[in-house]
Amino acid sequence: MNLSILHAVPLAGQVINLCAAIMLLLGFAMLAQRRILTLINLFMMQGAVLAVSTAIVALTTQQHHLLWSAGLTLILKVILLPYILHRLIRRLSVKWDIETLLNIPTTMLAGIALVVIAFNVAQPISQLSGTIMRATIGIALACVLLAFLMMITRSKAVPQVIAFLAMENGLFFAATSATYGMPMVVELGIALDVLVGMVIFGVFFFQIREQFDSLDIRHMERFKER
């Protein structure tokens, strides 16, 4: 059945592949970005691409519950979270520039290495999986790893949160590409988690700013026990 789908809708598969490639590209763009507002916009775009690809999968494979998750992604990651982040930045008057711990070209090289690793790690999984978008598992994994790398290399809290959210994007994409998504309940749960996490982060931002007058998380190093 899966094979017949693959032959029946080659165009949809190609569009999904294109979406996957764009997600990867956006992942790299976020990794290289120096401006915080652009970063949020990139995150928004990634969410939009994710929603589109999920919707296409839903329509071409008649997996209607995926339409719900596409809609959820659209509302949550394209509209709500960017809005909250924009507000946060305005309220916190965060500086526009992002400081990185590693310089950008080195990060990019590390990113390429991660992509190679992710593609190879994903190869056996994608051979097992029978979905229409199995080739994209590698890319989804690469997105996760890139977001993780971004979290490591950023020294301010806001970009770190964005990286965290981007990682969730990648995970979601991986789930869709491997098994047509998780059960609805789980997805709703995750969505809620992300939202709650976001709120907690917001509170946490205000707290650390009051404490240190800055969002630089390097200040937290002071908390370690000696």
């Binding site: 990867l24 080739a135 994209t136």
Partner: peptide
């Protein structure tokens, strides 16, 4: 940076080709 991005895009293109196509 501009040309590094171009280089990166081209390398990514090659990797994506190897994976997807």
């Amino acid at each position: 940076e501009f040309l590094g991005t171009a280089f990166l895009l081209a390398v990514l293109a090659m990797l994506v080709h190897l994976l997807l196509e």
